[in-house]
Deep mutational scan, measured.
Amino acid sequence: AITFRFEGQEKAKKFYEKLMRQNLEATIHIHGDEVHVTVH
């Protein structure tokens, strides 16, 4: 698994949606202002 870190939720959401379109499995974790997107 690879984890990407984002400042702010907007960028993270766009990235997450892009992964979903590519049929990749990903989970999102929100830590205050920092958002972690883990790709499995």
Rank of each mutant, 00 (worst) to 15 (best):
A1Q: 12
A1S: 14
A1F: 13
A1I: 12
A1V: 13
A1G: 11
A1W: 15
A1C: 11
A1P: 11
I2Q: 06
I2Y: 08
I2E: 04
I2W: 10
I2K: 07
I2D: 03
I2C: 13
T3P: 02
T3R: 06
T3Q: 04
T3E: 04
T3W: 06
T3K: 06
F4M: 03
F4A: 02
F4T: 03
F4E: 02
F4V: 06
R5F: 13
R5E: 04
R5I: 15
R5K: 14
R5L: 08
R5N: 04
F6W: 02
F6P: 01
F6R: 00
F6E: 01
F6T: 02
F6H: 01
F6K: 01
E7T: 13
E7H: 13
E7N: 13
E7M: 11
E7S: 13
E7F: 13
G8P: 01
G8M: 10
Q9K: 10
Q9R: 09
Q9H: 14
Q9G: 08
E10Y: 07
E10A: 08
E10P: 04
E10R: 05
E10D: 11
E10Q: 07
E10K: 06
E10G: 05
K11G: 10
K11E: 15
K11Y: 09
K11R: 10
K11D: 15
K11V: 12
K11C: 14
K11N: 11
A12G: 04
A12R: 00
A12E: 01
A12Y: 03
K13T: 10
K13Y: 14
K13P: 00
K13A: 09
K13Q: 14
K13I: 14
K13C: 12
K14Y: 08
K14E: 14
K14P: 03
F15N: 00
F15Q: 01
F15A: 02
F15M: 03
F15H: 01
F15D: 00
Y16P: 00
Y16N: 00
Y16A: 06
Y16V: 09
Y16D: 00
E17K: 06
E17L: 08
E17T: 04
E17N: 07
E17I: 07
E17F: 05
E17V: 05
E17D: 12
K18Y: 15
K18M: 15
K18I: 11
K18E: 14
K18A: 13
L19D: 00
L19E: 01
L19M: 09
L19T: 02
L19H: 01
L19I: 09
L19C: 12
L19V: 08
L19P: 00
M20P: 01
M20S: 05
M20Y: 04
M20A: 05
M20C: 06
M20F: 04
M20V: 11
R21A: 14
R21V: 08
R21M: 13
R21K: 13
R21E: 12
Q22T: 05
Q22Y: 13
Q22C: 05
Q22G: 04
Q22K: 09
Q22M: 15
Q22D: 07
N23W: 07
N23G: 15
N23Q: 09
N23R: 06
N23E: 06
N23I: 03
N23Y: 05
N23A: 07
N23L: 06
N23V: 04
L24Y: 12
L24P: 03
L24M: 10
L24Q: 05
L24F: 12
L24I: 15
E25V: 15
E25K: 15
E25F: 15
E25G: 09
E25L: 14
E25R: 14
E25W: 14
E25H: 15
E25C: 13
A26R: 01
A26F: 15
A26K: 01
A26V: 14
A26N: 01
T27I: 07
T27Q: 06
T27F: 08
T27P: 01
T27W: 08
T27R: 05
T27V: 08
T27Y: 12
I28T: 01
I28Y: 07
I28G: 00
I28M: 10
I28E: 00
I28H: 01
I28W: 08
I28F: 07
H29T: 15
H29Y: 12
H29Q: 11
H29D: 07
H29A: 12
H29V: 13
H29C: 10
H29N: 07
I30F: 11
I30G: 03
I30D: 05
H31G: 03
H31Q: 11
H31W: 11
H31F: 13
H31M: 12
G32N: 07
G32D: 07
G32W: 05
G32L: 06
G32E: 06
G32P: 04
G32F: 07
G32M: 05
D33N: 14
D33K: 11
D33W: 08
D33A: 11
D33P: 06
D33L: 10
E34I: 12
E34P: 01
E34T: 10
E34R: 06
E34Y: 13
V35Y: 14
V35F: 12
V35E: 00
H36L: 14
H36A: 04
H36E: 05
H36D: 03
H36T: 12
V37G: 00
V37L: 03
V37Q: 00
V37W: 01
T38A: 04
T38S: 05
T38P: 00
T38W: 09
T38V: 13
T38R: 06
T38I: 14
T38C: 04
T38N: 04
T38Q: 06
V39D: 01
V39K: 03
V39R: 03
V39Q: 03
V39F: 14
V39W: 13
V39A: 04
H40T: 09
H40S: 08
H40F: 14
H40M: 12
